[in-house]
Design a protein around this nucleic acid. Structure first.
Length: 491
RNA sequence: GGUUCCUUGGCCGAGUGGCUAGGCGCCGGUCUGCAAAACCGUUUACGGCGGUUCGAAUCCGCCAGGAACCUCCA
């Protein structure tokens, strides 16, 4: 590789060259969803970001194990439902088994990810399926003197830990500041220190998701699952841990503390975080209630949406911003993404029809290297896309008869689109136009357009416009070109 | 209050010292029976005030505004 991959490491706040611990193998762990609600646009960001990384690492030749967990236990509520977790609360409200709720929303999540063409990870471990591993983790931390038992619960002793290591290394905090700013949480009176966090929580009598442990019938604290499952599937040291920026503190900070407290050092070499999707400048999220679910985007069924947006539009919209920047949702921005993507796809289709010539009128040899360079620069997909648009201009010029390409250059251009747009950025081809489109169906449309062509030749504008207008009304887009008419289904 | 970070043209969004980012939109032109599409061209930038430098959107300081995290969150 002439340009090695560099990724931004939150821990060092620098771009660093990616050097896997055990090439050609590479391991990545990404915090997945808590499955207690429909997936919204915010969930698409990390899924797509790390999907790009997953695809690119494979392209570079690594054998990647990608672990993305399913959080289906833990996550304490902060209000009066002391000790009751979100899954259990939802279950009781809906009179469903907790695992029924989990399965329902997990299915919904997977459907949405599939629509977005997010590749399934190598392993999707459930927190509830790894209670034993989490209990083992807590035991190690206790044995090493960095935790204490209190009233059947186990808490991480942040102060003891901070004397030997440093708590706050990832988020840049120090415990003096945190001592002054930590709010009063449930179970506070059981803790030695307000900033201590739960490793194991004793379950209240009404709490239905519970497991036996040496300390009580209860459930693991909410940071344990990632530490335990990361170690189980990727080993005590692995390459990449990713997630949303909102997880840096406390979640990932606590994961580091747990790893160091249990095994002496952190498991993770590179910490990567995607930024948030915002609405009117504010984070789109469950707690603010300002989220739009992915299904609502796909169907257009939300008051804030001017129309439906296809999964590929959503994907392209997200990839047009760098993953470490916030991206602000608006109909205007989504519409622009939709049109831009259509332009890209149209150019690709035109490319397939271009006839080769003896010479090329434009030099395209640098495009591939530029795209690779952008990918290597911390997965800069907006730059990759801008280079593809450069190619679009050249293709369209040739289509207009004002330029030519050799066989080799046509094949290079095709390869460019196929590699960067389809394989690496995961844009799928005929997603929008494919609906019900069979060969015979297409031929029928072609027949109508042939009739229209004959009418035009006879200057029978009434007939030709009637065919075009009625096809348009039925949802087709008709384009007249030099070589006859083209059509496609408008979403 | 603390920690981290952001402020680019009508909109979105790249860009860490000098070279046209790109997309969408607008306007003009080419093409077209008309339109759409396509192509060409044009236009509007780097929150404010200072400083460093031959030169700053890019580095430093101050000010203004905003965000994330400090409670579950992607």
């Amino acid at each position: 590789m002439e340009h090695p991959l560099h990724i931004y490491n939150t821990l060092t706040r620098k771009k660093e060259q990616f050097i896997p611990l055990h090439a050609p193998h590479s391991g990545m762990y990404v915090c997945g969803p808590t499955v207690y609600g429909d997936p919204h646009l915010g969930h698409a960001r990390p899924a797509i970001t790390f999907d790009i990384l997953f695809r690119y690492l494979q392209y570079l030749g690594y054998k990647v194990r990608y672990v993305r967990n399913i959080t289906d236990v833990g996550h304490l509520e902060h209000d009066a439902d002391a000790g009751e977790d979100k899954i259990a609360k939802k279950a009781r409200l809906e009179q469903l088994e907790p695992m029924e709720v989990v399965q329902y929303y997990l299915n919904r999540y997977r459907d949405a990810m599939k629509a977005l063409n997010v590749l399934p990870p190598s392993i999707e471990p459930h927190a509830s399926g790894h209670i034993i591993e989490q209990i083992e983790l807590v035991k190690h931390i206790l044995d090493n003197g960095f935790a204490y038992e209190s009233e059947g619960s186990v808490y991480f002793d942040v102060e003891a830990y901070d004397k030997k290591h440093r708590y706050g290394i990832l988020s840049g905090r120090n415990i003096e500041d945190m001592l002054n700013t930590t709010r009063a949480l449930d179970g506070q009176e059981e803790k030695r220190n307000p900033i201590d966090f739960a490793l194991w929580k004793k379950a209240q009598p009404e709490h239905i998701m519970r497991w036996p442990s040496p300390w009580s019938d209860g459930f693991p604290g909410w940071h344990c699952e990632c530490t335990a499952m990361g170690k189980k599937y990727l080993g005590a040291h692995f390459d990449i841990h990713g997630g949303g920026m909102d997880l840096v503190f406390p979640h990932h900070e606590c994961e580091i503390a747990q790893a160091v407290a249990s095994q002496g050092d952190d498991m993770v070499r590179y910490w990567m975080h995607n930024n948030m999707i915002t609405v009117n400048g504010q984070k789109m999220g469950k707690s603010l209630g300002n989220f739009i679910t992915l299904e609502e985007f796909f169907t257009g069924s939300h008051a804030m949406l001017a129309q439906a947006y296809s999964p590929m539009t959503i994907r392209f919209f997200i990839l047009q911003a760098h993953y470490r920047s916030t991206v602000d949702f608006s109909n205007e921005a989504l519409l622009a993404a939709e049109k831009g993507l259509a332009r890209l796809m149209d150019a690709y289709k035109s490319l397939l029809k271009l006839q080769p010539a003896d010479v090329s009128s434009a030099d395209i040899s640098s495009l591939r290297a530029k795209c690779i360079e952008a990918m290597n620069d911390d997965l800069n997909t907006p730059i990759v896309i801008s280079h593809l648009f450069d190619a679009v201009r050249l293709i369209n010029t040739a289509k207009d008869g004002k330029g030519t390409f050799t066989v080799a250059d046509l094949s290079e251009l095709r390869g460019l689109f196929e590699l960067f747009l389809f394989t690496l950025m995961g844009i799928t081809g005929e997603a929008a136009a494919a609906g019900g489109g069979t060969e015979a169906f297409g031929k029928a449309i072609d027949l109508l357009l042939t009739i229209r062509q004959q009418a035009k030749a006879n200057k029978d504008w009434a007939t030709s416009d009637k065919i075009r207008n009625e096809l348009t009304a039925l949802g087709f887009e008709i384009k007249d070109t030099k070589d006859g008419a083209e059509w496609k289904l408008a979403h």
